[in-house]
């Protein structure tokens, strides 16, 4: 993956598509995967990815080089995915109760077996489906994309302690519900 230099950003902001493609190749994995985990739907994730990069291309002229392009794109991605999700009300409709969704994942055994059977995606989606939108975004940015607390706080424009408390509540919820499921399937 090529490094995104200031020259590339400058050229892209002047409409150079080749330079913009370099930015796309460096950032699209993040954008698509965050959108996919938030939307839980590939078509929606593709639509959000397109929207994020078209917005980025349009607004690149006003981008100040002293700030981080990565953080800026993170913020556009999260805002876009959240707005898209709210608009389509996909998220609320797709959230099942943990008992249902986790049962699907846990029927054949524990999480480790699921991973071995290449059902990782299903397990992850089931875990995420029990979280509210704010908690889900934090868990995706931290556990899947590996952002630091500081980066998450910047992307979401929130305090670092809010990131901490959202992650804590999300994980407590997952743990408590998983214990119920473990109990039922023992």
């Amino acid at each position: 993956m090529r490094e995104i230099t200031n020259d590339i950003i400058l050229l892209a902001s002047q409409g150079d598509l080749q330079s913009f493609e370099i930015i796309y190749k460096a950032m699209s994995g993040f954008v698509y995967n965050v959108a996919l985990r938030i939307m839980n739907n590939r078509e929606d994730a593709e639509e959000v990815t397109q929207e994020v990069f078209l917005t980025t291309y349009r607004k690149l002229q006003g981008f100040r080089l002293e700030s981080s392009l990565k953080t800026w794109v993170y913020r556009i991605t999260v805002n876009c995915a959240i707005n898209f999700g709210r608009k389509k009300t996909v998220i609320n409709n797709k959230i099942k109760t943990y008992d249902e969704s986790a049962a699907e994942a846990m029927v054949e055994g524990d999480v480790q077996k699921e991973i071995e059977k290449e059902h990782t995606n299903k397990v992850v989606n089931n875990i995420l489906s029990v979280l509210n939108l704010e908690q889900r975004v934090c868990v995706v940015l931290r556990n899947i994309e590996g952002l630091s607390y500081e980066e998450i706080a910047e992307a979401l424009n929130i305090n670092i302690n809010t990131v901490r408390s959202r992650l804590k509540r999300a994980r407590e919820k997952i743990l408590s519900l998983r214990k119920q499921v473990d109990y039922e399937y023992l």
Binding site: G29, R42, E46, D110
Partner: peptide
């Protein structure tokens, strides 16, 4: 076991090729 291990597998997906074509 429940919070870290599930996310340690390969869970990131490749972006479909046609997405860039549409953007372009």
């Amino acid at each position: 076991k429940n919070l870290a291990v599930p996310f340690k597998g390969k869970i990131r997906e490749d972006v479909p090729e046609h997405v860039w074509s549409s953007i372009r």
